[in-house]
Design a protein around this nucleic acid. Structure first.
Lengths: 236, 236
DNA sequence: AAACAGAAAATTGTTAACAGTTTACAATTG
DNA sequence: CAATTGTAAACTGTTAACAATTTTCTGTTT
């Protein structure tokens, strides 16, 4: 194997900074509820706890701020974000808008491999549903489908925007208290339709379906959104 | 004057960190062409030049990276961003999508004060055009209109997204070489129509108009986009 | 010459200390 | 006892030095 062919197979190992690690740790802690909405995050305490200096912690907090998982006040105090109903509306309206664009581009650009991967995600969710599945697993498989959709759009900036919105969508998914089996079935059904439309390169159809999909999701979420992220005493 | 009344008049001074200042300086330097596409930005050199330590410089570079004005490579090297035609497509497709959402929300939420401000921006651009106006002034007035539009939408996350896209739109506007008087007139005409539609709370009409406005802008830009930001030797 | 290896220089990543600001608390006053 | 002021503690902002990595240079080999 010559060096050119090697280069195509061996991509350079992705360099991770301590800031990346810290951001991941904190993100997990927030999404799993170990860090509760409203809780204050102190740089010194975090850096000690994680065994790094304040620099990387600062960088991580700044990133989480961008992702909407924490709020940095004007005086520099950082707290875990609390999502109000108004925030929920913002997140979902933006999401709807981004998904439409993703669909448009995916219809034009998705490769057969992309479509196969989309189908694989739908299949694994269908299989998971049959054997029974936790709230968390459901949310993650749902998000996974949309991740692949954005990937398929081959639109770097769109993917970046989705990445900044993604965690908040995840929080909202987890905090809805009525993700019924019916709803999960509807998700699989919805996803399958979208895959079919993309495969057929039928943009209008795909747009209709994603619009429906988003409407259903928002409807459910806004009705059932427990104020877990607004009530400071609630422990989820 | 009691303290309550005072509080309404005296807002706390916005705290600016050195990172804010550095980001602003660098942004200006990039947008004005003093820092050219592809040029490498070294933390030590910048910190010395600006009289601050590397910390704030780092923070600023990270912010500009988010805004798409610089690119931070996997090995940490930072260069001034170069916008390809593909990037131009990404920026404008995303912009079109965000503007549609802004219009939707502005139609619902714009206050009479918002509408008056939109009208004021249109008027000042019309006036400026009559007396003659530079490329730069034209772009800035154009952007100003859209800034106010996003403000009027009362949608914080949407405004944040626009903020991260804004600088790239500005670069693209400046690098088109045929911003004819005709086009500038078309901009004023387009903006006026949008203001009227928002005033009438006519969402469908406003959406049609913004769609046209974006199509015209993209069409012009993509045709005339000089490769200033892709050709390293070009000095704009 | 082109390719390579190793050393030196340049550059970013990280840390720890210092400076400035904000918050919490206790003492004081009306 | 509520409101206010002064003070100490806590915390973030910034800096400068050190560590690790990447790039550049130079000499060597084929």
């Amino acid at each position: 194997m010559d060096t050119l062919a090697l280069a195509q197979v061996l991509s350079p190992p992705i360099k991770r900074s301590l800031g990346d690690d810290v951001a991941e740790s904190l993100r997990d802690a927030i999404l799993s509820g170990q860090l509760k909405p409203g809780e204050q995050l102190r740089e010194a305490a975090l850096s000690e706890m994680l065994g790094v200096s304040r620099g990387p912690v600062r960088e991580a907090l700044s990133r989480l701020d961008r992702e909407g998982l924490v709020v940095i006040s004007r005086t520099g105090r950082t707290t875990v974000a609390r999502l109000s109903l108004e925030d929920l509306d913002e997140v979902y309206s933006l999401r709807r808008t981004l998904e439409r664009l993703a669909i448009e581009y995916a219809c034009m650009r998705a490769t057969p491999e992309d479509i196969a991967e989309l189908q694989a995600v739908v299949n694994s969710m269908a299989a998971a549903l049959k054997r029974g599945i936790s709230e968390k697993e459901g949310a993650e498989l749902d998000l996974r489908f949309h991740d692949v959709l954005y990937q398929s759009s081959r639109h770097q900036r769109l993917l970046d925007f989705w990445t900044t919105l993604r965690s908040q969508v995840y929080i909202i998914m987890l905090s809805r208290n009525v993700a019924s089996a019916d709803f999960k079935d509807a998700v699989v059904y919805g996803h399958q339709g979208i895959v079919d439309a993309i495969k057929a390169r039928d943009k209008d159809q795909a747009l209709d379906l994603i619009e429906q999909h988003m409407a259903v999701a928002y409807d459910l979420v806004s009705k059932s959104y427990v104020q877990a992220y607004t009530d400071p005493d609630r422990t989820i």
